[in-house]
Simulated assay, not measured.
Amino acid sequence: MPNARISLPKAKLSAVLGHLAKIPASLSMTTIQTSPDGLWLYQSGHGLDVQLCFPEARTESRVTTSVNTAALAQMVSVAPGEAVEVEVGPSGLKFGTGGYRASLNGLIVDYDEPPIEAEGGVVVPIAELGRAIRCVRHAVGGVNRPHFRGVQLEFSPGNLRAVASDGYRLARYDLGVDGPLNGKAMLPLKPLDAALGILSTQDGAATLQLHGGRLAVIGEAVRLALTPMGQGLPNVENAIPKSYVAEAIVDPRALIQAIRRVSLLSPQDNRRIDLSFSEQRLEVRGAGDYGEGRDEVPLDTYRGEPLALSLNAVYLYDALSCIEGMARIKISDPRSPIAVEALEDARYLGVIAPILNP
Rank of each mutant, 00 (worst) to 15 (best):
P90L: 01
G176D: 07
A11C: 00
V284P: 05
A185V: 15
A139M: 07
K242T: 12
L192N: 07
L187N: 09
D178S: 15
G150E: 06
P180I: 05
E154V: 15
L199T: 08
N357D: 13
I259R: 01
A21C: 02
L208P: 13
P157Y: 07
T31R: 11
G291I: 12
D110Q: 13
Q257A: 12
A21V: 04
M29L: 15
S26R: 14
N182K: 14
K184R: 14
A73W: 01
A185G: 10
A162H: 00
I240K: 02
N238H: 11
A287Y: 11
A118Q: 11
P157S: 04
A195Y: 10
Q268G: 05
G219N: 12
V140W: 04
L41S: 05
A194F: 04
P337W: 08
A258E: 07
E60K: 12
Q280W: 08
L210W: 09
I323G: 06
K184G: 00
P24N: 11
V86W: 05
G18W: 07
G130H: 04
S156D: 04
E117Q: 10
P252N: 10
A353I: 02
N312K: 10
H211Y: 09
S332G: 12
D166K: 05
G99D: 09
G197V: 04
E85T: 06
D274P: 01
R145T: 14
A11W: 01
F155D: 06
R131F: 11
A4L: 01
G219F: 05
L175Y: 03
V217L: 12
S44K: 14
A339H: 00
D112Y: 13
V314D: 13
